[in-house]
């Protein structure tokens, strides 16, 4: 019974990991690839980790597998946010058929700083590089 449940979880998780790999390979721009990699990838990883936690007989190892899942759940959105922010400031091109870019008027992505926030030596963001307008 336990093994059947773990097997189903592993199959579902491997399927979602496959979806994320296909997305990274096939989608047309960076932000869509990040969409595939972060959401589907994290869900697939979570399913496989729970299956592994079920398969292990020892409680300590199962708890460690759940801890890996919690760590992944905490760090994957942070990494994706930081990467997407850097990519947007650096002027990575959106897909040619993108219909909505709500940040388009906020940052001047053609400026020498690529429109990104200018940091001083302490790492603080200066007031002159706040977004313009109502953003």
């Amino acid at each position: 019974m336990l093994e059947i449940a773990a097997g189903l979880l592993i199959i579902a998780g491997a399927f979602f990991m496959l979806v994320s790999a296909l997305g990274v390979l096939r989608l047309p721009d960076l932000f869509m690839r990040m969409h595939a990699a972060t959401k589907a990838g994290t869900l697939g990883a979570a399913l496989v980790l729970f299956a592994a936690a079920l398969l292990f007989g020892q409680l300590a190892v199962s708890i460690k597998a759940v801890a890996v899942f919690l760590f992944l759940l905490l760090t994957a959105p942070v990494a994706a946010h930081v990467l997407g922010r850097a990519a947007y400031y650096a002027g990575v091109e959106l897909w040619s058929e993108t219909v909505l870019d709500e940040l388009k008027d906020c940052y001047d992505r053609t400026s020498p700083q690529h429109g990104g926030p200018v940091m001083d030596r302490a790492g603080k963001i200066g007031a002159e590089s706040r977004p313009r307008g109502d953003c």
Binding site: G13, M17, L83, A87
Partner: peptide, 16 residues
């Protein structure tokens, strides 16, 4: 950024 993302994905798959 694509390369960094791909390295991240490869790392996640290796973890699993």
């Amino acid at each position: 950024e694509d390369r960094i993302l791909a390295v991240n994905v490869v790392g996640t798959k290796a973890l699993i």
